[in-house]
Design a binder for these strands. Structure first.
Lengths: 254, 254
DNA sequence: TGTTTTCGTTTCATTATTTAAAACGACATT
DNA sequence: AATGTCGTTTTAAATAATGAAACGAAAACA
């Protein structure tokens, strides 16, 4: 395990659970020696990625992580672009809307706009979404580089609910249906009782970089609604794609 | 130099300048060997903090940094709390408003709401603000742990404009005046022609965690305005402090 | 066009950093 | 008093990081 991997896993642990944690607690969580954990934390503190409360010695994520994220946003305004459009979609449909971005770690849920209805779907931020079991994942694979799907289907396909589809051939069909339709339909494959539709967010090269999804309680959705929601999510996702690539195309000099 | 420090400095370089950079370019910027730079980038890619464009091999900051920042925001909603209040203050005063947070690296500018006026002050995000030469720094020191000020005044006090005050005794007086007044006044100490007022943002323990500032072109500010702007920035900063800590923060003298 | 430079990548002996057990005093709890 | 846990420092040993060299491929140059 590289030193960098250790340091980052420490950051991830700091990001989960309690906002502030003790050294011993962190060392137990990541399973490094106390002395090692401390050395890593000190190095991260030097860089501003970790902060320590003066009195209680508790550690927490530092402002440096926000700084890096702001720098990234300045270069590639994903959140700035997608959030207002997702909010408009949530307002229009009345349902929870969330979007995700793909990385080497998988498809990461990065923002959620919750429905104002009492009976709504809660989606956690920061979670890695399984490609085969979510509407977002299917929509993403349908418009991503082909190798992404092959890699995903070669891995072990976990089952999350009694409705999860884990047969590779069946998933291939869902993906090509989504490709033809422009959006995917997810029926309780990841969380019971949750129905969703999702459309890809496309990057500069025309391949998917993420997905936009609407999630609603199964009970509220009638078949005719699916088409309307699908069309809405496709339209909003296209808007995001256009704004993202439109601004990014020109910027290469100096 | 620790491996962690090297990895983070690579991230910082990726955050500056062009959105995407080549390996050779990055290696030159951070002054590591090409092989070393690549190894670090691969490790960071594994963790999702760096991404690489499939075709062009260009590197960029990854979604992982946004993810860490979102986790931090979930634990300590600094941006979520401060941005709307800063925007309201900018709308009310018509001037540029920005706020900063303190870390081991110093006082970091984290968000700016630009004035809508043509003649406005531009403040870069992500910059480290010198404590002795900015209104934000003075306001922060006035309500921070005493050791922060002592450490700051023991360092070499850089001069940025002909108006920069570098005499430790004079700075101490500015700080105690700010403490008594509740806000600080900065007169072109960091950038020529920029006038500003700032108030501390207080954390859970009642000490400063950052500062909120209004920055305006010197020409637009008349002495009577100072008091009104000062009162406004104090009010907004207190609002942020209160929402952040959940309880009523006492900004008064101890 | 052929030539030269620069690129990303891999290898591997050398070097430097990282590791973790042990021991410490300071607290808290029993 | 006694016990457990905390953060911290120190060390030799283990391990990861390093960078010069070499490679073909692609760009840049002539």
């Amino acid at each position: 395990m590289s030193t960098v991997a250790k340091a980052v896993s420490l950051l991830e642990v700091l990001g989960q659970g309690e906002p502030e944690r003790t050294l011993a607690d962190l060392a137990r969580s990541v399973d490094f020696d106390k002395a090692t954990t401390r050395r890593l934390l000190l190095a991260l503190m030097d860089q501003g990625l970790v902060e320590q409360d003066g009195g209680s010695r508790l550690y927490r994520l530092g402002i440096g992580v926000a700084r890096l994220a702001l720098m990234r946003e300045a270069q590639f305004p994903f959140l700035r672009t997608a959030i207002p459009i997702a909010e408009a979609l949530a307002a229009r449909t009345g349902e929870t809307v969330h979007f995700s971005e793909h990385s080497s770690r998988g498809l990461i849920s990065v923002h959620v706009v919750e429905s104002s209805k009492a009976n709504r779907v809660a989606v956690p931020v920061g979670e890695t979404l399984p490609l085969h079991a979510t509407a977002s994942g299917i929509a993403f694979m349908a418009f991503a580089d082909r190798r992404v799907m092959e890699a995903a289907l070669n891995a072990r396909l976990a089952s999350y609910t009694p409705h999860t589809i884990t047969n590779p051939m069946a998933i291939r069909e869902l993906v090509s249906a989504a490709h033809a339709r422009g959006y995917s339909i997810g029926a309780q494959g990841y969380e019971d009782g949750v129905f969703s539709v999702a459309a890809p967010i496309l990057g500069a090269r025309g391949t998917a970089v993420g997905a936009l999804a609407i999630a609603a309680p199964r009970a509220r959705i009638e078949p005719p609604d699916t088409e309307a929601l699908g069309a809405a999510v496709v339209e909003s996702a296209s808007q995001i794609s256009e704004r993202l690539t439109g601004r990014r195309a020109k910027a290469a000099n100096d």
